[in-house]
Amino acid sequence: MRSYKNINVTKAVSILAVSALLSTTAYAGNDDSMFALGAKVGTAGVGIEGRAHIADNLYGRFGVNYLHYNHSLDKGSLNYKGKLTLLTVPLMLDYHPFDNSGFRVSAGIAYNGNKVTATAKPNKTVTLYGADYAPEDLGTVKSKLTLGSKIASIVSIGYDNSFISESSWSFNAEAGVMYSGKAKIKVSATGLAANDQEVIGDLNRDANKSLNKVKKYLKFLPIVSVGIKYNF
Rank of each mutant, 00 (worst) to 15 (best):
M1C: 01
R2K: 12
S3T: 11
S3M: 05
Y4S: 05
Y4A: 10
Y4D: 10
I7E: 08
T10E: 11
T10C: 04
A12C: 03
V13K: 02
S14N: 13
I15W: 04
L16M: 05
S19W: 05
L21Y: 06
A26Q: 14
Y27E: 10
A28Y: 07
D31G: 04
D32Y: 09
M34H: 12
F35Q: 03
F35P: 14
L37Q: 02
A39D: 01
K40R: 14
V46Q: 05
H53E: 12
I54L: 15
A55I: 02
A55T: 02
D56Q: 15
R61M: 08
G63K: 06
N65M: 12
H68Y: 09
Y69I: 00
S72Y: 04
K75I: 00
N79Q: 08
Y80H: 00
K81R: 02
K81N: 14
K81L: 08
K83F: 06
K83G: 07
V89W: 06
V89N: 02
M92P: 03
L93V: 15
L93W: 02
D94N: 15
D94R: 08
H96A: 11
F98V: 15
N100F: 05
F103R: 00
G108D: 04
Y111L: 06
N112C: 09
N112D: 07
G113Q: 07
N114L: 11
N114F: 10
K115M: 14
V116Y: 09
A118T: 05
K121A: 07
P122K: 08
K124F: 08
K124I: 00
T127R: 07
Y129Q: 15
Y133R: 09
P135D: 08
L138Q: 03
V141F: 04
K142A: 06
S143N: 06
K144C: 00
T146L: 03
T146E: 14
S149N: 14
S149W: 05
I154P: 11
I157G: 12
D160Y: 03
D160H: 05
I164T: 11
S165G: 13
S165F: 01
E166L: 04
E166F: 02
S168F: 11
F171W: 12
F171E: 05
N172H: 13
A175W: 02
M178Y: 01
S180N: 13
S180L: 01
K182C: 00
S188Y: 00
A189M: 09
A189V: 10
A189G: 14
A194M: 13
N195I: 00
D196P: 00
D196A: 00
D196K: 02
Q197D: 11
E198T: 14
D202L: 15
L203S: 07
N204W: 10
K209F: 00
N212A: 07
N212E: 13
K213S: 08
V214I: 15
Y217N: 10
K219T: 13
F220M: 01
S225D: 08
I228T: 13
Y230G: 01
N231S: 15
N231T: 10
F232M: 07
F232H: 05
F232I: 09
